[in-house]
Design a protein around this nucleic acid. Structure first.
Lengths: 206, 206
DNA sequence: GTTTGTGAAACGATTCACAGCT
DNA sequence: AGCTGTGAATCGTTTCACAAAC
């Protein structure tokens, strides 16, 4: 498939949310202009983004809300559920496990790991922390699609390799370390310190 | 000052980390190539990024590690400490408060707020959750630079306006809702569901 | 010989603007 | 008349490539 820019994908996710809002508001159709206004972008951007995947609208009318939602869910791969493992049961890891938004959107956390004996056996939201030594075994039985890494930076690469070896096809990395994964594995990074530093830069340069 | 791309700023933050690593390894100088390898970019990119702010290197030699670190810290505004307030003491909010990385990097969380009576009065890492009704009063006495919003989406805009009204000049938004702030206020968004959806798209399109 | 700093070229994303459909 | 779909133009970022400095 043609390469789609990351920024485009993120906007599609946002459009889907707005479409769902329009749907509960009882709107049957929506114009690119209306979607753009809600999303802080331009109507041309909306039309271009959608045009990568087909033509979903009717000229003079706009887009059918319900149908476009459905198509976007399909495009984004949100018409199925994903099995997710979380490695690292520290502050952020355990918060993620308890975060309802993931399950709502189709992401089921099926296992949580840590290496700290004082954490192993504890339960968060009904999910018991397992020894990371059991990771390979668990990957075989749980067959997760996505791995979330929330371990200290110096352990992230090793965990990543074990996840990939165990068949995980997508990794979300919260560790403040750059990860190397094979071409075939999707990778996203969330680096909280980096976000604050970007704000610091903005504050400093005025 | 000339407009610097967000991607550039993020890379500068990364370079600073690598420089600190090189520093502890006892390296006196470092080439753009070495920095690029560690950061997964190219030497030309490193040189271009740095050239926006001056010329820090010596041809044939590379960059002086200690001096460049110092300059980058200055450029990124990390040569001072920031006062941060967190609004929302749910899973993510309380995790952020306990996250050591922020303090290490110069970001001191000075207050934590929630509206839920069952959370008010609880302490996380020595920081007592205060009633968000006291927000204005606290902003006056604490004079924070940065506000972190970790409340449900439908409350985010209102909280943002109260923070801005109270003098906050930068906002980090974890709520899954687009925020409107004045031009003069720096804004960054972290949307965890969006990151997972980007992975979902990557998984779906193969 | 090595490595920087930087214009120029290439690439990629966004915006423009309008023909074509409803 | 209203709004989409899309080539063309514009804008911004990354990569190239080389002269200049050490």
């Amino acid at each position: 498939m043609r390469k789609i820019a990351d920024s485009t994908v993120r906007r599609l996710s946002l459009y889907l949310r707005y479409l769902e809002e329009f749907e509960t508001e009882g709107q049957a159709t929506v114009s690119s202009e209306a979607l753009a206004t809600r999303g802080g972008t331009t109507s041309a951007q909306v039309r271009k983004d959608l045009s990568f995947f087909g033509s979903f609208g009717k000229r003079g009318l706009g887009y059918p809300v319900a149908e476009l939602s459905e198509r976007l869910r399909r495009i984004l791969g949100l018409d199925r559920r994903y099995r997710v493992v979380v490695v690292g049961a520290g502050k952020i890891g355990s918060a993620l496990v308890q975060y309802r938004g993931f399950r709502q959107r189709g992401f089921d956390i099926v296992a949580l790991f840590d290496s700290d004996p004082s954490k192993i056996g504890r339960a968060y939201d009904g999910l018991v922390v397992r020894d990371v030594a059991e990771l390979e075994q668990a990957l075989r039985s749980e067959t997760p699609d996505i791995g979330i890494i929330v371990v200290p930076g110096d352990q992230a690469q090793a965990v990543s390799e074990r996840l990939v070896q165990g068949g995980v096809k997508a990794v979300l990395n919260f560790a403040p370390a750059p990860l190397h994964v094979p071409e075939s594995v999707a990778l996203k990074n969330v680096n909280l310190a980096l976000e604050l530093e970007a704000l610091s830069f903005a504050l400093a340069s005025r």
